[in-house]
């Protein structure tokens, strides 16, 4: 199968730089797949799961908390706010973050930034879901 270059970068570091067969990412309007020779595209990403198919049938899972996907000239670049390999997610921390966001959204303290709290809630939820997924599938 044809491959293309994928790089995933966050403001802190480059997470991944690899030849891949296809990826599935959480685009602004739902999950979308990108294979080799895809048309040029720019889309924001939602918090969600990135599935990467490497040549030879290996599959990688990453949690992403938002960002962008750009595809051009048979190269895909993901600019993620934060991205982690599913195996490296700190589930306990994600649970704490989820509880904190949940509590804030419930209590509605004075001057609460609802958008930010909601975003934090969704990010934590996403990370937990992906961490669990990898436990179940036993990667």
């Amino acid at each position: 199968m044809a491959t293309y270059q994928l790089s995933i970068a966050t403001p802190e570091e480059t997470i991944l730089e690899e030849m891949v067969e296809s990826i599935i990412v959480p685009g602004a309007q739902g999950y979308l797949g990108v294979m080799a020779n895809h048309a040029a595209l720019i889309t924001p990403l939602q918090p969600g799961k990135i599935t990467i198919h490497l040549p030879g049938g290996t599959e990688l899972l990453l949690a992403v908390s938002g960002g962008f996907l750009e595809v051009a000239h048979n190269r895909a670049t993901i600019l993620a706010d934060a991205a982690e390999h599913a195996t490296k997610i700190d589930r306990a921390r994600a649970v704490t973050a989820l509880d904190r966001a949940d509590k804030r959204l419930r209590d509605r303290p004075e001057g609460l930034d609802v958008d930010r709290a909601t975003a934090a809630f969704r990010r934590a939820q996403n990370r937990i879901r992906i961490a669990d997924e990898i436990l179940v599938s036993g990667h």
């Binding site: 685009g27 602004a28 040029a40 595209l41 720019i42 960002g67 962008f68 051009a72 000239h73 600019l79």
Partner: peptide
């Protein structure tokens, strides 16, 4: 690096998402 992009959903929405990150990156 010219390319005729498909913008999903549309350029204005992408700008709204991109710009805050762009200024953060510059500050950083």
């Amino acid at each position: 690096h010219r390319a005729d992009y498909i913008f999903e959903p549309d350029p204005a929405a992408i700008f709204a998402d991109l710009m805050p990150r762009y200024v953060t990156t510059r500050m950083q």
